[in-house]
């Protein structure tokens, strides 16, 4: 996968939020939390992270997924994982 910016990762996260909550005008910021979006519970959160993992072709650790409190943290963890995996694939080539 070519390098993604942190903003692009958050864009993908936003896409998935929109699908899961059926709201095409949903806008995420780093400080968005479960309190801001009705229906965002722990099961939905896991579903969202898993969908992101698949889209970005990365895998987080269970303890990282559990600890994610807001959109900023979700984005950062996913972004870090993307970078790590693309560095790995750079080394591979």
């Amino acid at each position: 996968m070519s390098e993604l910016t942190r903003g692009e990762v958050q864009g993908i996260l936003q896409d998935i939020f929109r699908t899961v909550f059926g709201n095409d005008s949903l806008v995420l910021t780093d400080t968005t939390t479960a309190a801001d979006i009705p229906g965002w519970d722990s099961l939905q959160q896991i579903k969202i992270i898993l969908a992101c993992e698949k889209r970005l072709n990365v895998r987080l650790r269970a303890r990282d997924i559990n600890g994610l409190g807001n959109v900023g943290e979700m984005t950062s963890h996913l972004f870090a994982a993307v970078n790590k995996s693309s560095r790995k694939s750079d080394r591979g080539t």
């Binding site: 722990s42 099961l43 896991i46 579903k47 898993l50 650790r61 269970a62 997924i65 559990n66």
Partner: peptide, 13 residues
Amino acid sequence: QRLYHLCKQPYSM
């Protein structure tokens, strides 16, 4: 297994 530890669903999505 990871999903089972996270939310007690043993099957992958």
